[in-house]
Design a binder for these strands. Structure first.
Lengths: 221, 221
DNA sequence: ATATTAAGTAACTGGTTAGTTACTTATATT
DNA sequence: AATATAAGTAACTAACCAGTTACTTAATAT
């Protein structure tokens, strides 16, 4: 399990740990990666442990050795993927800039993060549906825009008189999130209806612009 | 066999002893209703045939008699629930009215339809995730706003100079749909974060107003 | 009334799947 | 080199579940 001799020593504890520890770490990572793809594709109910082990190229026994059981593996997958949202966070806000610029930059970052992380999008969708069923409890972290300090952005915009003061910030966040997610959660339906590759560079940019226009000015004149 | 089975008391005909056709129709309806609730709750993979039969108060054999197999039952559930969208459709458009009035009325009808039909919302969500997996093919009808002739509304608005002419109608429909659905698909997360009952009359109306404001004017001043 | 047919039941079947057992192989420590 | 421990394997098991079988009961037509 997690038996690194951290502060403890008898003799020199050289970075020899290499081979075995390294390989075990690799196995763990391979399982997590395979599990991500299969849980994202088929959901917590549809995913099969054997298929995950197979795709990871390890024996099922090892999966249980590293992760205990299917539910815990699923939770690890959620944690592992949720952490990815932090890779973009934080640097989106620069209070020196215009609120409009800040909001546009944050939405753009979020939108392209979703475009690049299909597994993440699907995992959040499964979670929204299965909450309280498979994992037994809710994973509120998946309400990710909050983590991006998006509400600070909006507050700043209101204070500086750029954003209408009467809006409900919680609802604004939910709306932005919904607008960005829609393209990717409805991907297959959209693709079959529009008969167009949503993931082309131009199309993605057009979708993003549509969202920004809507957020900034609405649809009406 | 003999005339009357001995020892078996044949009292008055049971109260439910309507004619055969009627009872069979009732059984079918009960199965469909139970299946709707369980497929909506647990999805096509998580739903159990035994549980559906149990909840419908009929024998599993009868479920197979009426619906053939689980997948076909699921398809019937989709069809049955999808048809509900027609109950509101059509009467939303009145080209004599202002486009703004028409759009507001259509969005309001759609929003409250979703609020009143949790099963419908969840079925569309499962479909978006499971498309091409459980049913083998996609159920594009679930892109429901199109059925509501919402695009005609927007076209009318553009022609009459109320709606910006540069917007992509397909994207506008997707956006409206996403904004309305978000409250209900993310219901549990929202409820736990906001610590408020989204389904109170005031809250629903506030959410709808937020959507309408966003659609009409955006968030910025 | 009797034959026919549909509605209904309980118990079973065969395939699947999460999780386990009993064992072998490789690596590190003494 | 011997031993301890972790990584790894194949085959198994118990539970589950979609779908079936063999049968009984009830309603309708003749």
């Amino acid at each position: 399990m997690e038996g690194y001799p951290i502060g403890q020593h008898k003799h020199i504890t050289p970075p020899k740990a290499a081979n075995r520890e390294q390989r075990s770490e690799e196995s763990r990572a391979r399982i997590l990666k395979a599990a991500t793809s299969i849980f994202a594709e088929k959901g917590p109910e549809g995913a099969r442990v054997d298929e995950i082990a197979d795709q990871a190229g390890i024996n099922k026994r090892m999966l249980y050795h590293y992760f205990g059981n299917k539910e815990n593996l699923y939770l690890e997958v959620l944690r592992y993927n949720y952490n990815k949202i932090y890779t973009l966070s934080k640097n989106a806000i620069n209070l020196a800039d215009e609120p409009k610029v800040n909001v546009a930059r944050a939405i753009r970052a979020y939108f392209y993060f979703l475009a690049d992380n299909e597994a993440y999008v699907r995992l959040t969708s499964w979670e929204a549906l299965c909450v309280g069923r498979f994992t037994g409890k809710l994973f509120p972290q998946f309400f990710d825009l909050i983590e991006l300090e998006f509400d600070d952005l909006i507050k700043d915009g209101i204070e500086r008189g750029c954003i209408r003061p009467d809006i409900d910030i919680r609802q604004a966040i939910l709306s932005v999130r919904a607008l960005c997610l829609a393209y990717f959660t409805q991907r297959k339906i959209v693709q079959s209806l529009w008969r167009e590759d949503i993931f082309s560079e131009e199309m993605l940019e057009a979708c993003l612009q549509h969202i920004l226009n809507l957020i900034f000015d609405g649809l009406f004149i």
